[in-house]
Design a protein around this nucleic acid. Structure first.
Length: 288
DNA sequence: AAAAGTGCCAACCGCCGAGTT
DNA sequence: CAACTCGGCGGTTGGCACTTT
C-alpha cells in the first residue's frame, strides 16, 4: 500500500526560508491558528509543503522559542532525560520549556554525545572486530559489533549520568529522603508513562528469545513483584496502563520530574541491569 | 591567500500511529 | 476491516561558517 506524498512535489519550494515566507507564515498563524498544516501553505500563499511549514513554525518561528546557548541546568536535564528516555527527543523537549526537539537532538549529537564518549575513556570505533551478525551469541568476544556498540554506548551513558547525579546530589532537594521510600519511587516510576512504555516493550520482546528480552522480562517481573507487595489491588498488572485508576499518581510530567530528583544512589536498579550482557536499557527499543 | 577539514544547525525524508472514511 | 489522511517523530543531510594546514 503506497501512500500519497504529503504535498505535491512539483512547484513546492525547498531549502532555506526567506524572511518574506516567515512573515507570511507568522501572520497567517497569528490570524487563523495552525489548523490543518496540509491546507495552511495554500491558504497562507506559501509555496511550501505543509510539513515544512509546521517544522519552520515549531523549530524557529514560535514565539515561545528560547534562543541562545543551553544552560548547565538544561544540559543536566537533557543528560538525565536521555538516560531514561533514550532518543525520544520530543519527550525530552517537553520538559525543557522553549527548547525544540530538533535543537536538543542537535545539541546532543554535536556536544554531549562527543563529550561522553571522550570521558568514558574509549571510543566506540576503537573496538571493531569482525561482524558475525546480530544474533550470534556464543560469547562476548564474538558478539556482533553492533550489539557491543550499544553496550559501550549504554555504559558511557550510565557513567555520565551517575557522575552528573552525584554532582547534583548536594544541591537538589531530596524528594525521597523526606517523604518517599525507594519502593515508592519504583512504584511511581512503574505507573508513569515511562513505565508504561517499558511494559509495552517488555511484552513485545518477551515473545522473542533474545537475551535483551530476557533481561527486560526479569526487570518487568521484579517490578511487578514490588508493585504487588506494595499495592495488592493492582496486582493483575493491567492497572498500570490505566492512568485513570491511579489518581494518586501524576502523568508523565511529574513522574519524570520525580526521576530527575533521584540522586545517584537511587538509580542503581538501572545500573545493575546495565552490567548484564546485551543490556540495552529498559526504554531503548529504538537502539535495536 | 587558498585549499582542505571540521563543526554546527536548519531543513528534509521517510516511517509510524491515530483517526477517519 | 481495509484503505487512506494527517500530524508527529527521529535520523540524516546540505550547506554555511569557522579553523587548520
Amino acid at each position: 500500500m503506497g501512500r500519497s506524498p504529503c504535498c505535491d512535489k512539483d512547484g513546492v519550494k525547498k531549502g532555506a526560508w526567506t524572511p518574506e515566507e516567515d512573515e507570511l507564515l507568522v501572520q497567517y498563524i497569528k490570524k487563523h491558528g495552525c489548523g490543518s498544516w496540509r491546507t495552511l501553505p495554500k491558504n497562507a500563499g506559501l509555496l511550501r509543503c505543509g510539513k515544512s511549514c509546521r517544522l519552520r513554525w515549531i523549530n524557529y518561528l514560535r514565539p515561545d522559542i528560547k534562543r541562545g546557548p543551553f544552560t548547565s541546568e538544561e544540559e543536566g536535564k537533557i543528560i538525565q532525560l536521555h538516560g531514561m528516555l533514550g532518543n525520544r527527543w520530543a519527550a525530552i523537549a517537553s520538559h525543557l520549556p522553549g527548547r525544540t526537539d530538533n535543537e536538543i537532538k542537535n545539541y546532543w549529537n554535536t556536544h554531549l554525545k562527543k563529550r561522553f564518549l571522550h570521558s568514558s575513556g574509549h571510543s566506540l570505533e576503537a573496538q571493531e572486530p569482525s561482524f558475525k551478525g546480530p544474533h550470534h551469541r556464543s560469547d562476548m568476544k564474538s558478539e556482533s559489533s553492533s550489539v557491543r556498540h550499544v553496550i559501550q554506548w549504554e555504559k558511557a551513558r550510565v557513567e555520565a549520568e551517575k557522575r552528573l547525579s552525584m554532582e547534583l546530589e548536594s544541591s537538589c532537594v531530596n524528594h525521597f529522603s523526606k517523604s518517599s521510600t525507594h519502593s515508592d519511587c519504583f512504584l511511581r516510576l512503574w505507573h508513569s508513562e515511562v513505565g508504561q512504555s517499558f511494559r509495552m516493550i517488555t511484552e513485545k520482546k518477551a515473545e522473542s528469545e533474545s537475551p535483551t528480552s530476557q533481561v527486560s522480562s526479569v526487570f518487568a517481573n521484579m517490578a511487578q513483584e514490588q508493585l504487588s507487595s506494595l499495592n495488592p489491588k493492582l496486582e493483575d498488572g493491567t492497572a498500570g496502563s490505566d492512568s485513570g485508576s491511579h489518581d494518586f499518581l501524576d502523568a508523565s510530567d511529574s513522574a519524570l520530574k520525580l526521576l530527575l530528583d533521584i540522586p545517584g544512589d537511587n538509580v542503581g536498579f538501572f545500573e545493575g541491569l546495565e552490567q548484564t550482557e546485551n543490556f540495552q536499557g529498559p526504554l531503548h527499543d529504538r537502539y535495536d
